[in-house]
């Protein structure tokens, strides 16, 4: 981690030295539905993500990717099992940043790019205080790192898809996040925008930032991530991409009717379960 970031880093929880970035033990998420009775959204999840790893999370819609992210963020409590982040439960951490799917953001909202990035600082500025000089410096620095300095004064509605994604990563940088969750950041981005996104993720990884990325793009998952997690309510397979995304595993995760679409530079998995999920 750069010394600049380190100087300003502050945790409500001191991170345990040598502990993994993320450990899930025996996680079950179940809820009662008026129509279906007891529904298990996630079942018996056990896995560890080491600090600095970049993980692709793939699986059909409704596989529980969003549920998993909500668990890690701490907005959802597991029915059973435990989540550890740098050795503690998620509650005390402000080092987790969530980059939402782009269609979950109100792009008409009256804020500029630098306003959005400054929101990442709110947890550190504290109640009843206004942004200080070092907070604005952090915002400028974060925008520089994602090559978006020239967009600072723009209203967020006027940005392209790739720019929108970069601005939200800048917000995570301003938050001084060490665990980054990105919810389908590649969807709708052209190849150059995807490449520049991975350039940023590479730079972050070099500083020890851990990232979990939900995606539907299986080729990218294999090529650009340390590990792939294939999820469908339970972990179907987890490990190096080539060993995880085998035809058998994909059949298992996506059901009987998986269609693998190979185009020039992407492989997408489409299945009948698509769009029937709860995500």
């Amino acid at each position: 981690m750069s010394t600049f970031v380190k100087q300003l880093t502050y945790h409500k929880h001191e991170h345990e030295p040598d502990s993994a970035a993320l450990t899930l033990e025996g996680i079950v998420v179940a809820y009662h539905d008026a129509v279906n009775g007891r529904v298990t959204a996630l079942d018996n999840l056990n896995f560890t993500v080491q600090t600095g790893e970049r993980i692709a999370v793939v699986g059909p819609n409704g596989a529980g990717k969003s549920t998993l992210f909500n668990l890690i963020v701490g907005t959802l409590k597991p029915t059973d099992g435990r989540v550890h982040i740098f050795g503690h439960g998620p509650d005390g951490h402000i080092c987790i940043a969530y980059v939402p799917q782009r269609n979950n953001i109100d792009w008409q909202f009256p804020v500029t790019v630098e306003d959005v990035v400054m929101m990442g600082r709110v947890g550190r500025i504290g109640l009843f205080k206004w942004p200080r000089k070092q907070d604005w410096a952090m915002v400028r620095h974060s925008l520089e790192r994602v090559n978006a300095s020239h967009l600072a004064k723009r209203q967020i509605g006027g940005l392209s898809g790739g720019q929108q994604q970069r601005v939200f990563i800048a917000r995570a940088l301003a938050q001084e996040a060490e665990l980054l969750l990105l919810d389908e950041p590649l969807t709708g981005l052209d190849k150059p925008s995807q490449d520049s996104l991975f350039d940023i993720l590479d730079a972050l990884q070099a500083e020890g930032v851990t990232a979990l990325v939900a995606t539907h793009d299986l080729n990218t998952a294999v090529e650009r991530f340390d590990k792939v997690m294939l999820l469908n309510r339970e972990i179907v397979a987890y490990g190096a991409g080539q060993s995880v995304l085998t035809p058998q595993n994909l059949q298992h995760a996506y059901g009987g009717h998986v269609h693998l679409i190979n185009s020039e530079d992407t492989m997408m998995a489409l299945a009948d379960t698509c769009c029937g999920g709860r995500e």
Binding site: K12, V73, G74, D91, P100, M119, L127, F128
Partner: peptide, 22 residues
């Protein structure tokens, strides 16, 4: 005035508000 930035965050992005532990 006192809660300006917090109200801004909960109006724009509830998940961010949660990750910032507001």
């Amino acid at each position: 005035l006192l809660f300006y930035k917090e109200f801004l965050v909960i109006s724009f992005d509830m998940i961010l508000a949660a990750t910032l532990r507001l």
